[in-house]
């Protein structure tokens, strides 16, 4: 077992915990959505990186090529990207509505207003 062979997992996990940290630690709602986006894109890497074969090519059937990357993670992640942008749009719409109702997009201000 070699640690160097697992570098793609380690990079994915680093991005994932960075996104998780931004979601939990930052009070600004737009910053939270950016953190959620980072978490989401790190999952793309988690799926696509194990499908890669060094020396292979993109899964488009062509004479003269025999080694292709695994196409199934690509299909899953295509769906995930489109659904991700749909949920992002909904989240941003919620942020805009919260700003209209509370006058702020900072979590602390919103909680303080709720306690009044």
């Amino acid at each position: 077992m070699s640690l160097a062979g697992h570098f793609s997992y380690f990079a994915t996990i680093s991005l994932m915990i960075a996104g998780l940290f931004i979601v939990m630690a930052r009070g600004n709602l737009i910053k939270k959505l950016v953190g959620l986006g980072i978490f989401q894109t790190s999952v793309y890497l988690l799926y696509v990186a194990p499908g890669k074969l060094i020396g292979g090519t993109a899964p488009i059937i062509q004479e003269g090529f025999a080694v292709y990357a695994n196409p199934l993670p690509h299909v899953l992640i295509l769906t995930a990207i489109v659904v991700g942008v749909a949920t992002l749009a909904l989240g941003l719409a919620l942020v805009v509505r919260i700003r209209e109702a509370y006058g702020s997009i900072e979590e602390d201000d919103i909680l303080a207003k709720d306690r009044e």
Binding site: T41, Y44, V48, A49, G51, K52, L53, G56, T57, A58, P59, I60, Y68, A69, P73, H74, I77, L78, I81, V82
Partner: peptide, 10 residues
């Protein structure tokens, strides 16, 4: 990573 369709969409 040879995921060209995903790269274009991203």
């Amino acid at each position: 990573l040879d995921a060209v369709d995903v790269a274009m969409t991203e």
